[in-house]
């Protein structure tokens, strides 16, 4: 009885994780530009991995395992935002996106303000730094 319940819970977790992967795949196929695709791509990396690790924990039936799986997930949580930030920033800077699909661009104001502030007292010998 107890085993059946655990098996059903495991199956639900596995199916949920797999559906997250499929959602990311379909999003990669259907979405029009880089930023929209990035939105879809993060689903299996965080929630999908959490569901899969939950399934492992349920099947192994031991609490000792929980810290190991938590370390695995937290590591993913730490690295995914950093790489997403780098990719998104690079995509913005090199114009790998469709501006007509944006409803709001807050970064543009910031860049504009920074450029205006820096322009008057720029030292010509100074190496121009990258944003």
């Amino acid at each position: 009885m107890n085993d059946t319940v655990i098996d059903v819970l495991t199956a639900i977790c596995l199916l949920g994780g797999a559906l997250m992967s499929v959602a990311a795949g379909v999003g990669l196929l259907r979405f029009p530009d880089l930023l929209a695709r990035m939105h879809a791509a993060t689903k299996p990396q965080v929630l999908g991995l959490l569901l899969f690790l939950l399934a492992i924990g349920l099947q192994m039936r031991s609490w000792v395992l929980v810290p190991v799986l938590m370390v695995c997930w937290i590591f993913m949580l730490l690295t995914v935002p950093v790489s997403a930030h780098m990719v998104g920033r690079a995509g913005y800077r090199t114009k790998h996106m469709r501006r007509d699909l944006l409803s709001m661009d807050e970064l543009d104001e910031v860049v504009e303000k920074a450029a205006n502030k820096r322009a008057p007292d720029r030292n010509p010998t100074e190496r121009p730094d990258e944003t």
């Binding site: 791509a41 299996p44 991995l49 899969f52």
Partner: peptide, 24 residues
């Protein structure tokens, strides 16, 4: 950048498959 993003998704999917193997 699209390719890198897709590679990330592919790696996450492979990781998911490894996790499924471990759970089963």
């Amino acid at each position: 950048l699209d390719r890198v993003l897709a590679i990330d998704v592919l790696l996450a999917t492979i990781g998911g498959a490894l996790a499924v193997d471990m759970a089963v």
